[in-house]
């Protein structure tokens, strides 16, 4: 391996590492200054069971709130992404209760009214924007809720796409909404009901089901390794710059 230092996530301690104080749930620990909150907590001796998932900022397991001395503001970050700051007071919120309405997607129309019926509390939103402020993924939570109220599910879907479902918005909502569940329903409605389906997908599923590639695939499956390698080398390459409608000159392996 070219990288000569061991790259496990475990922090290699050394007296030279400059350290800063942080307060984990009110308790003071000295930790190396460039660590993320997650690695700092591990350095301090915590072993995560909750509060840690992807370690990459997409799973929403590690929502963390903190304050700094002399500053009234509640700050927020993902423990796996946020670098520690001196004197920060932090706690993780690995779970927050949120009710979810079950629905039958197949039987649904995909209308905003169905979402309103499943989550009538959506109209309790008073647009205080606390949800947007706390969102560690910088999603405009209040705006997507507003879009759902108005019936603009496409916009809601777009605005909520980066939601990581950590639940911090739910913890702050004075109208007591489970925002991320509502957005999930809206996005699935958009994907399943409001967006045109891909025709080519159905066509190819049919081709395969009707066995139109069967002989070809039987041959490939039983071909010798050498002849497979020859066929592999002979594949015509779809040029990167060509558009959707490109068709190959070599029709081998295709139906047309």
């Amino acid at each position: 391996m070219a990288n000569d230092t061991d790259s496990r996530d475990k922090v290699q301690d050394s007296p030279q590492l400059p350290k800063i104080p942080i307060f984990i749930m009110g308790k003071r620990y000295m930790v190396p200054e460039e660590l993320t909150i997650m690695k700092a907590m591990e350095y301090a001796g915590y072993q995560f069971i909750r509060g840690c998932g992807c370690r990459m900022g997409v799973c929403g397991a590690c929502g963390t709130v903190y304050r700094k001395p002399g500053d009234y503001k509640i700050r927020v970050g993902l423990a796996c992404q946020t670098v520690v700051e001196p004197e920060m007071y932090l706690t993780q919120l690995p779970f927050y209760p949120a009710n979810r309405a079950s629905y039958d997607l197949a039987g649904a129309q995909g209308s905003a009214e169905e979402i309103h019926a499943a989550y009538p509390e959506v109209f309790r939103c008073v647009s205080c924007n606390a949800c947007t402020k706390i969102c560690p993924a910088e999603v405009s939570v209040m705006d997507y809720i507003a879009a759902i109220k108005r019936g603009d599910l496409e916009l809601a879907s777009e605005l909520s796409f980066e939601c990581i479902q950590c639940g911090l918005c739910v913890s702050r909502c004075m109208a007591e909404l489970p925002q991320y569940h509502i957005a999930q329903m809206a996005r699935r409605f958009v994907g399943a009901k409001l967006t045109p389906k891909a025709g080519h997908l159905r066509e190819q599923v049919r081709n395969i089901a009707e066995g139109r590639y069967k002989d070809l695939m039987d041959q490939l499956e039983s071909a010798s390794k050498d002849s497979l390698i020859e066929l592999y080398k002979a594949r015509q390459w779809e040029p990167a710059k060509e558009g959707e409608d490109w068709t190959p000159d070599d029709h081998r392996g295709l139906l047309s």
Binding site: H200, L216, M217, L255, S256
Partner: peptide, 19 residues
Amino acid sequence: ACDKAQKDSPYYHFLDVLG
């Protein structure tokens, strides 16, 4: 997934996977 029949098929996808 090889779902564009005008240019793609299980044949090409299979060869790519094997290669």
